[in-house]
């Protein structure tokens, strides 16, 4: 692995950055990955947990695991951001199991609250793809990815029938796959 290819898209840089980290064990290089993704991962984790301290804790642990697992990163299988997401998601899921935050989660569900969701995405393909979804579908996508709500929890929160929720998510998923392909 030579120099990071800066003329390529940002993403490929992070992919090769991780590959280089795995090969060389270069901690400084890993900190570049940390510096870029920490504020972004934090952004998602704060929404997911509604708890800044917990978000911070999960984020720090995610990067430690990313370091420990760097050898398992395969850019042919997933992008660096996706790989980091799966690590953080697994930590969040484990945390839910331990702490039973589901209870807290459930308490937060106020009946029929459909507020406008703001993904807050920067300009790019994914922002456009979300903007192209019907309101209800982007809402369901937000509730799944950013609030970590199950179909039944979304039903409780929105008052919509489960079947409607599932078909909204299914349709949104299919459209996002087409618009964002190839990921």
């Amino acid at each position: 692995m030579g120099e990071l290819k800066l003329e390529n898209s940002e993403q490929q840089d992070w992919d090769s950055c991780l590959v280089a980290v795995a090969e060389t064990g270069d901690r400084k290089l890993f900190m570049a990955f940390y510096d870029y993704f920490t504020p972004r991962l934090r952004s998602w984790l704060i929404k997911l947990t509604s708890d800044r301290d917990l978000a911070e804790e999960l984020s720090q642990e995610a990067f430690l695991q990313a370091w420990r697992r760097a050898k398992t990163f395969d850019p042919k299988k997933a992008k660096a951001s996706t790989w980091l997401f799966t690590i953080a998601r697994n930590l969040f899921v484990d945390h839910k199991r331990r702490q039973k935050v589901e209870q807290k989660h459930a308490e937060k569900l106020a009946g029929g609250d459909i507020q406008d969701v703001d993904f807050g995405l920067d300009n790019g393909l994914v922002k456009k793809a979300i903007a192209n979804l019907p309101h209800q579908q982007s809402q369901m996508i937000y509730q799944s990815y950013y609030l970590g709500r199950s179909h039944s929890e979304i039903a409780k929160a929105t008052g919509l029938p489960l079947g409607t929720i599932k078909s909204s998510i299914r349709l949104a998923f299919q459209k996002l796959c087409i618009e964002l392909d190839p990921l």
Partner: peptide, 11 residues
């Protein structure tokens, strides 16, 4: 991968 995009393009 969709979630990865969300992370990468989060503010």
């Amino acid at each position: 991968a969709i979630a990865g995009e969300f992370i990468e393009h989060s503010p």
